[in-house]
Design a protein around this nucleic acid. Structure first.
Lengths: 272, 272
DNA sequence: AAGTGGTCTAGACCACCCG
DNA sequence: GGGTGGTCTAGACCACTTT
């Protein structure tokens, strides 16, 4: 059982519906709620008011509220629980990087690598990365990190964060950051990652990376360039990770995924 | 402008709603329609009857029909066109393999490789693959194929198909199959791929593959194991592809994808 | 003008979870 | 038992496309 913080009461205030009046009502409601999540006004675990209550407060039909929350649920911003309520979701993208590599314990469960922060400070974003991500060469917070399995450095990461919501990360004790960054972003800076986008390339390992990863000359590296986004799609973090190509693996599904799953209400799935 | 076959009229008959009566109505409607597509009774480009018409014929509320079609549209089985109607979709997963590799023309558009079929016949599925995919070592249709760019073999593929709907593929002239298999499956066998699932691994290239791909000793290969599925998620094709690892690239998005897109009705997106 | 999908309303009743 | 989300009904009116 994972330890969960106690749920907060329903947010006292619903946000105003002030978006572009040309947009459909359910869309404006969706955007207003997503904005509350992105601003940190609603945090993971919080419960929303009941759908009928929301409809009363905004004086709109329950079906319209339902459609807005349908879309929030589709994008995994909220989590509906039949009979209980609707709650702000806490996604888990931090381990998403680990799904790429082959480190498992005897029972096949993923092994959490050790994490060491080599540098933490403010730098100017290198031109090559600014161009790659189409962002200005501004001052940003930089973290350099190494992650190790079995006593060997296996993953090198350079992480860039906008100074504005992430300043607290510079002040914090290293021990208070811990091995997983996204929970630290939430704990220390109130920022939650709801989506990631990755570009993956296999190429010859750069000289310095090769040395740090303990690879021979001519070794290939996998390079993963990631952008992490908040509930309204604004970028929160840019990350460039490198590892030995030979250990890379990945699973992916597009469109229909397997035989149409048994339905939750289907008694057939309750059998023995 | 792509050349499109003429649209067929609305299917004369709607399927009966005979699924498990414990399922929600909209779900039974979804399953009945998806089944029509998988059976080939409804083909890409066909138009559905209007939502209100469907509601009349089944004597159910229009909102229920709408929810069923919402889900078909979410999974890209149908394509809604405001003011026109709803049409069975023709997905394009065939080029999906090409998105992995770096072959582009001067304008950055993907280059279609040459395709050569080396073997076409019935074989018993090799035990290693049967285990990998958890399917029996039954007799299957086998295609071995090489795809070349710039005069060099760059992609090796072994393809396995169940004999039942694909027998026509053995009789067909090779010229009638063409360089893209999924369109051939549709044309010759009436089977349409609506989803794929892939496992990607980087490993040392096997000796025979190395020779065919023109790689030196110690070269790394990317190996892609794919399952292709029809509209109800049943597997249609199993495929194992190998290529030089160094040319591999991939782009991937999970969850929120970029700033919330401008809305179709949003006048701001119509500007200049 | 006619026909289509898109939005919104205003309910009823059911299934599920908790105290 | 009371509150929650889940399903379903039966309309009205709007926006878009084609004839």
């Amino acid at each position: 059982m994972a330890i969960e913080p106690p749920l907060r009461q329903s947010p006292a205030l619903l946000p105003p519906l002030d978006g572009d009046p040309h947009l459909p009502l359910y869309r404006r409601l969706y955007l207003a709620f997503a904005q509350q999540i992105a601003r940190g006004a609603w945090r993971p675990g919080d419960s929303l008011p009941a759908e009928t209550r929301i409809a009363e407060l905004y004086r709109i039909a329950p079906g319209t509220v339902r459609k807005a929350i349908d879309e929030l649920a589709d994008r995994r911003l909220v989590d509906r629980r039949h009979g209980q309520g609707t709650f702000i979701a806490r996604p888990n993208f931090d381990n998403a990087m680990l799904r790429f590599f082959r480190f498992r314990d005897d029972r096949g469960a993923p092994v959490l690598p050790e994490s060491r922060i080599l540098h933490r400070g403010v730098i100017c974003l290198p031109a090559a990365l600014a161009q790659r991500w189409s962002i200005p060469e501004a001052e940003m917070i930089h973290l350099a990190r190494e992650r190790s399995w079995e006593g060997q450095v296996r993953l090198i990461e350079d992480i860039y964060l906008p100074a504005v919501p992430f300043a607290a990360l510079l002040e914090a004790e290293e021990s208070s950051i811990g091995p997983l960054l996204y929970p630290a972003y939430e704990r220390l800076c109130g920022q939650v990652v709801y989506g990631i986008e990755e570009d993956i390339v296999i190429r010859d390992a750069a000289g310095p990376d090769r040395a740090r990863l303990g690879l021979g000359p001519g070794a290939l590296a996998v390079e993963i360039a990631r952008i992490a986004r908040n509930a309204v799609g604004e970028p929160l973090e840019w990350r460039l990770s490198r590892a030995e190509a030979r250990r890379f693996r990945y699973h992916l599904a597009l469109g229909m995924e397997g035989p149409d799953a048994a339905w939750p209400h289907d008694p057939a799935s309750m059998k023995a």
